[in-house]
Design a protein around this nucleic acid. Structure first.
Lengths: 116, 116
DNA sequence: GCGTTACTAAACCTTTTGGTTGACAACCTT
DNA sequence: AAGGTTGTCAACCAAAAGGTTTAGTAACGC
């Protein structure tokens, strides 16, 4: 699972991490702030943040002993591009099927195996 | 990881499964057809298809011994909705920051530590 | 300097994941 | 009925994920 797209999808597969992303979308926050609402250890949240940061979804900066987390929302484009590509392809196929069915309806005798 | 959104993200975190989705976007296919390009066993691909189907991304039908796989592209909406929500929120916050910076630029003397 | 705060690293444990092989069910073909 | 396809199920295995606890580092406040 080396490629970034896989890392991004995997990062967002965890509800806690999605929640962290949601909260970061409202503004930067420190590890302790992010960990507060959960009943897991700060270390666990720190690990989640490493996963998010390895996926490129969050960046870290330095403020004294604090390591504020910042959401890098552009990475979302990676996913939406992938998704849209195949959604579009599936929809096109779907409308082609519609066209075929309509054609069969128009000329029922030439349907399926029309050689001319 | 009970919720569907988690299952969908997790399903797409695997490159092989993303590849299967990509191929299904071009049209339905059987397990053997889908397994052919990979050097893993058919059983492994069958497991991948179970993951995709548990996530709601593919549906199976019945044709003699065959179980054709069909892409359910509407599930993509689940993800894009989630993504767009937080992307938008992050962008709004970003433009508010821009506004603040612009205001500071307009009246540099009142800006926090501006030595004129 | 000394304790406190903020965080990360390391070792460990358990569950999940992705793969294997072997057996089996269901259906077609002959 | 016998044999070949197509696909799943079950048992097993190694590696990864997600959590814990225990240490350890780095910067601050006094």
């Amino acid at each position: 699972m080396t490629d970034q797209l896989s890392r991004v999808f995997a990062a967002l597969a965890d509800p806690t991490r999605r929640d962290i992303v949601a909260r970061l979308s409202a503004g930067d926050a420190t590890v302790n702030e992010l960990a507060a609402p959960y009943d897991v250890s700060v270390q666990a949240v720190s690990k989640h943040l490493k996963v998010l940061s390895d996926a490129g979804l969050v960046s870290r900066s330095k403020d004294a002993q604090r390591r504020p987390c910042h959401l890098e929302a552009e990475v979302f484009d990676l996913m939406t591009k992938w998704i849209e590509r195949y959604r579009r392809q599936a929809e096109e196929r779907f409308s082609r099927l519609d066209a075929v069915l309509a054609a069969m309806d128009d000329k029922p005798n030439r349907a399926q195996g029309a050689a001319s």
